[in-house]
């Protein structure tokens, strides 16, 4: 190695120093929780926090990608709802149907996402509006499919959500963790991954450089749909059945860990590792508040305040005069 100037490790470079804020918050929360209850800082409780993070993690992963391109996907909640119903509705308690249905649901999720992407690219309408619209359409379809819980799944289906590896480590949360690492590797080490950052950073420059911006956008929204589908499967595993409002809270909830993790809504900056830490922060926060014996109602208040705190720290750069 030649002489190198002192700099942050690559993992933290490029504005990713924001991660330090999340890490600091995580430590702060941990200390707070540990001082409140003896049972907080136990392995059992931490594994619990880990397990609880899976659903939010999966949906936020896809959301991070859309936000990195400067967009957003407001249809994920509806997609989760519809696909959760299709999962339990089509499996209908039949062991043999599990694999084909899950595979089909994942493909369908990706297709719905791709349709979002195609609409965004073809119309030039802001992703917020497009996915708001497609979200409404998908929600309507979900309600046409059923107004309440539909179908059922075999008992063994709960392994995704409740199953553990030896040592009590949640399978679902570990799958989510693995996917985060995979996507992080993808973003940092593949051509398409780097181009996702480029098109979010400056779409006009991306066009002038001849980058396949449209194709990448379609792919990113397809990925978001895919991860929403995976979240749907997870939630069915957790609750044994799909319902028309299962995913409703996930649309906005999926954005919190992304922005708390330092990914800018303007696009081009951030990454999925920040989101993962953001997910753990939300999970730990809810857990801590339980220990503090604070009414679940205040959890919302705290969550909102955390968003405000986070977004006030990572100030988005303003277009100025000089």
């Amino acid at each position: 190695m030649q002489t190198r100037t002192l700099r942050l490790p690559r993992f933290l470079a490029g504005g990713r120093a924001a991660l330090l804020v999340v890490v600091a918050l995580l430590i702060l929360l941990f200390v707070l929780g540990a001082s409140v209850s003896d049972r907080f800082a136990t392995t059992g409780n931490m594994l619990n926090v880990y397990e609880q993070s899976a659903g939010l993690a999966l949906v936020s992963l896809g959301q991070t990608l859309t936000i990195l391109t400067g967009g957003i996907d407001l249809s994920v909640g509806s997609v989760i709802s519809l696909l959760s119903m299709l999962t339990s509705g089509l499996i209908a308690g039949d062991e043999a149907m599990v694999i084909p249905v899950v595979a089909g649901v994942l493909v369908l999720g990706a297709l719905i996402g791709a349709a979002n992407g195609v609409t965004i690219v073809a119309t030039g309408v802001h992703p917020l509006i497009v996915t708001l619209g497609t979200g409404a359409i998908v929600q309507g379809v979900a309600l046409l499919y059923g107004l309440g819980p539909v179908g059922s799944v075999p008992i063994s289906f709960d392994a995704f959500a409740y199953g553990t590896f030896p040592g009590g480590i949640s399978i679902g949360a570990t799958v989510a963790l693995a996917l985060f690492l995979l996507v992080s590797f993808f973003l940092n080490n593949t051509r398409t991954g780097r181009r996702i950052y480029a098109i979010g950073d400056d779409p006009h420059a991306a066009d002038l450089m001849g980058l396949p911006r449209r194709r990448i956008l379609v792919g990113v929204y397809a990925a978001s749909g895919f991860f929403a589908a995976l979240t749907a499967v997870y939630l069915v595993s957790r609750f044994n059945v799909g319902q028309p409002y299962t995913g409703a809270n996930y649309t906005l909830a999926s954005i919190t860990p992304v922005v708390v993790g330092g990914t800018m809504l303007a696009g081009g900056r951030g990454g999925v590792i920040g989101t993962l830490l953001g997910v753990y922060l939300v999970s730990l926060l809810n857990n801590t508040l339980n220990f503090l014996d604070i009414s679940s109602h205040y959890q919302l208040v705290v969550q909102g305040l955390v968003i405000i705190l986070a977004v006030s720290v990572y100030v988005e750069k303003q277009r100025g005069l000089a």
Partner: peptide
């Protein structure tokens, strides 16, 4: 080379130089 820069401010200099012609290894990775 346009008068207004066609650069991605949050990518590194090296990445900007090779964007669109990324240097890849045998596995197709950057």
């Amino acid at each position: 080379i346009y008068q207004e820069f066609v650069l991605f401010p949050h990518l590194s200099v090296a990445e900007n130089i090779f964007v669109g012609h990324e240097r890849r290894n045998r596995l197709g990775l950057i």
